[in-house]
């Protein structure tokens, strides 16, 4: 565990990375409109941001602001009307699990597979040899702290454990970018806090670029290097907040004035937009 603590103490500080470094992700003037009965509804307007390799970026905004849609577009699961998404300098045109791993809100594990086989699923799709599949999946389960649960089926795991399996599955192909769509949204408050710490530990060990969607203000401040605040529909980025709290983040920091100031700043945007 000594090396883990060391890794946490010296987090991956972002450097001014070239836009084509493998882990960098760039959303370039992206807009999207949904067709509806009484005319087209703009959902996302001119979303433009970049995350350098190794950064922890949080997208926060009210329900229905399009933050999940945006993440699905970054995962290549949906297409935008205009604009582009670049990962490591190359555009994302469809699902590309070698560049981008995804963790969903509901853990979305396949109930007919064991924890190990769920984690190995992306490898099986690429016809990796069974022995290697098992080895890599077991490594990932160890990373997320689920040693000894390999042969359990999802319904035999708690909600937090299921999300750990989902994170392991997102990481198993070692993609430089991990997209997380409200991964802890369905968990209770205490589990959620612990999973936040777990995620930061995993992040510091793997040095992925993380783009994390949430509607929890505290979670956003606690996790992020940088917070992008989105407005209600049509979603646009109304603020970019650099979080300079030291790492590792601790529970005590949540009581510090800097923490509250950042949380209030996000809330100001969200409440302000609601009043209009």
């Amino acid at each position: 565990m000594a090396d883990v603590t060391a890794a946490v103490r010296s987090p991956p500080r972002p450097v001014e990375a070239a836009a084509d470094r493998p882990g960098s992700i760039r959303v370039d003037h992206l807009s999207h409109t949904y067709p509806a009965r009484d005319g087209p509804v703009p959902a996302l307007v001119d979303i433009d941001f970049a995350a350098a390799a190794g950064r922890f970026v949080v997208l926060v905004g009210p329900s229905g602001c399009g933050k999940s849609s945006l993440l699905m577009m970054m995962a290549g699961l949906r297409h935008a009307d205009s604009g582009a998404i670049l990962c490591g300098g190359r555009p994302i045109t469809g699902p590309d699990p070698l560049r981008v791993g995804v963790v969903f809100q509901e853990a979305n594990l396949f109930p007919w597979l064991t924890a190990l086989d769920n984690v190995a699923f992306p490898l099986a799709l690429r016809r990796v040899k069974p022995a290697e599949r098992r080895r890599r999946a077991a490594d990932m389960l160890r990373l997320v702290g689920l040693d000894g649960f390999a042969s359990r089926h999802p319904h035999e795991l708690s909600g937090g454990m299921r999300q750990r399996v989902a994170i392991a599955r997102g990481l198993v192909q070692d993609p430089p970018v991990l997209l997380m769509d409200e991964p802890f949204g369905a968990l209770d408050e205490q589990t959620r806090m612990m999973m936040g710490d777990e995620l930061l530990r995993i992040w510091s060990q793997t040095r992925k670029t993380v783009v994390f969607v949430t509607h929890s203000l505290g979670e956003a401040v606690y996790l992020a290097d940088e917070i992008l605040v989105m407005s209600p529909r049509p979603g646009r980025i109304v603020d970019r907040i650099a979080v300079d709290l030291p790492r590792p983040r601790t529970y005590e920091m949540m009581a510090q004035p800097e923490f509250s100031r950042l949380r209030d700043r996000i809330w100001g945007h969200i409440r302000g937009d609601h009043a209009i």
Partner: peptide
């Protein structure tokens, strides 16, 4: 399930 599988390629 289908969305998840698609995201994994």
């Amino acid at each position: 399930y289908l969305v998840a599988a698609r995201s994994m390629g």
